[in-house]
Simulated scan of single mutants.
Amino acid sequence: MIGKHSASDPDFTSDQKIKLLSSGRAYFELLIRLIEHARENIQLQVYIYEPDETGQQVADALIRAAKRKVKVYILVDGYGSQGLKRSFFRQFRENGIHFRFFKPLFKSRDFYVGRRMHQKMLVVDAQYAIVTGINIGNRYNDKPGQPAWLDFGVYIAGEVAVWLCKWGWTTWRNFKRIKNAPCGPPLTAVDFGYDHIGTVRVRRNDWVRRKYEISDTYKAILGKAQTRVIILSSYFLPGYAVREDIKGARRRGVQVEVIVCSRMDVPLVKDAERFMYSWLLRQGVKIYEYSGNILHGKLATCDDEWMTIGSFNVNDLSARASIELNVDIKSKPFVREVTDKMEYIMSRKAMRVNADNFTQHNGWWHRLIQWFAFKFLRLIFFLGTFYIKQEDPRGN
């Protein structure tokens, strides 16, 4: 890892400028502002890029950058962005932008088999970066009568952006080794504002290359926590290993709180999630169902000391069948800010699941549906990334 390492952990780089980001108008304003100030190169990699108003606003900013002779590279997932028609992405290529789809292992007109590129990041001039769970599209933005899906990310200015630039090039080149990636930051910098100074490390999951760094982070959070763990996850289906880690944390007296969605864009997943509720409640885990618009965030905090944030959902699809990108952050003020936001969501924007009420209202028919949903999704996750194509695929 480049940069000034933390004395306690060589994977971490200290003295990074960081700022918590939330989905919505302010997020896209910063995204476009970063693009507009680019001088040398831009790397945008995202699971879903929607051809809607927000997608066009970002596209216009990227095209303006290309006309300033900035080298722009856009990589989107072949399944997640299948709604991106040729008529839309032609504008990229016509203006000198390098654009391509991340391809699966196998696909046909109706089926898709293989890993997803689920990571979401923007790197500008190897100097500024965003790592997030937020895709490009109206549903992640604030529109009249349509609040953004709840999601989070982090803005980073510092040497970690050089590392992310190199990772972006590795992904763009289909994971071929690159000796001289163009990732030297400019000599001058622009101050985009930051709230904290933190120690940061980049974490990846990629089952093809046997990288399970984010999974290891979650194991460390649950295994080392002394008092409290908060997990916000949009598709919370923990596998056996994570369930054992949760059980171990609870045995040590650690308070474990999980924030999930009360409703989803994919109802089958919500049924599968609720199948897990009985087990979680027996362990003493506090479950909160977010009652606002769709919850899409992915993060976890540990004792107000450190945390992880990015594209990783707590399920086997993210753990074993996707390319995921998170950053771990050590900064008490930053983690305190995140914890405060999570506490606000739990107290004002969510309903806690009561064990007695859940058991009373979750009859045998509901339990059967939930069991089937859980087993079906576990099978799909075990087989790998497999989709039956839909007309309007939803983000995750």
Rank of each mutant, 00 (worst) to 15 (best):
M276V: 05
R68M: 12
R210C: 04
Q82R: 15
G80E: 14
A189K: 08
E94Q: 11
R139E: 03
G96D: 02
E337C: 03
S262L: 14
G83H: 13
S87H: 12
D392T: 13
G198T: 02
D265I: 15
L105N: 01
L325A: 11
V314A: 08
R282Y: 05
I214V: 15
Q119M: 14
M121W: 02
Q127V: 07
N315S: 07
K71L: 07
L299Q: 11
D125Y: 09
K176T: 09
G137P: 00
F312A: 10
K332E: 06
R68T: 09
Q82M: 15
P186Q: 01
H5D: 04
V162G: 07
R250I: 12
E391N: 12
D195H: 11
I2W: 13
F376M: 04
F101I: 05
Q226Y: 05
I214A: 14
Q91N: 13
P182L: 10
I230D: 00
K270Q: 07
R251F: 07
K332Y: 02
R100Q: 11
A350Q: 08
F275K: 06
L317K: 03
V46C: 07
Y277S: 12
Y212F: 15
L368N: 00
M307W: 00
S81K: 13
V200P: 00
I388F: 06
F236D: 03
M121Q: 11
Q255T: 14
R250Y: 06
T188S: 14
Q82Y: 12
G363V: 05
R115Y: 05
K120T: 09
E273H: 10
V254T: 04
A225I: 13
A272D: 03
K69M: 14
H361V: 02
H118A: 15
I32R: 14
R109V: 01
I136K: 01
